[in-house]
Amino acid sequence: MGRAIRKDTIAGYLFLLPNFLGFLGFVALPVVFSLFLAFSHWDLLSGAAGIRWAGLENFRLLVGDPWFLSSLINNLIYSFFTVAFSLIIGLLMALLLNRHVFAKSALRTMFFIPYVVSMVAISAIWMAILSRFGPVSELARTLGVENPPIWLMDPTFAMPAIISLGVWNHAGYCMLIYLAALQGVPRELYEAAEVDGGGAWAKFVSVTVPMISPATFLLVITQMINSFKVFAPVQILTQGGPGRSTTVLVYYIYRTAYQNYRMGYASAMAWVLFAMIFIITLLQWQGQRRWVNY
């Protein structure tokens, strides 16, 4: 290695150093620490001296914890429906915008806005929309439903309400990614399909869907990971209720750590959550060979 090159290398690493130090201090060490905590009991307030080794006890307790089990199930339901509907609606919006429509860029901005608005503001809006005398209930009354449920306080409808909010929040982002993907589909393919006598549906199924499958794959993975982290709407709108119907993992982890000061148990849950996301992502990575075309 020449002198100049070595000097450049050192300079390069030095430029990386501040970022790396930040990463080390605020991400890497806490992650390692939380892994250690997952095998300990710690109430935070007694400081480092109060950490007691617990072995696998936290994980054993998890198995019989009704809150953990129902938040796990709720999380799976939330993730599945939020991701599915975000993608479908995002794709429909992208298909609409990909044609020559009136006020295209205005519409695109409108669809995208929910994604950049703060979750707290979104939650406040949805609370008003879904309240007893809000527009959704009024619409239901106009349609002949005499006593529409109080959506956010109904064990059947609270989770669908949180899911709708998640979809509304993320569909715009999916739309944007899909729009880019759609514009990358070569026109010749459509023309060839037309020559072969394919109708609109056949073109969509045989050309569009396979051609944008890399975008779908990207979205499924990122949206799935995102959806497992759902917290703010639950904290603001339902506090996990009514009953346990909207208690999700991150909400339960938060409650365990910062309200009950059980850092070890909360860390154990966080690592289980991580393992789950990791496994799901791995499975998707395996599965992609069958349906993603590059």
Partner: peptide, 8 residues
């Protein structure tokens, strides 16, 4: 209570 919570 459901009104208090759902309408804040």
């Amino acid at each position: 209570y459901v009104e208090v919570v759902s309408q804040n």
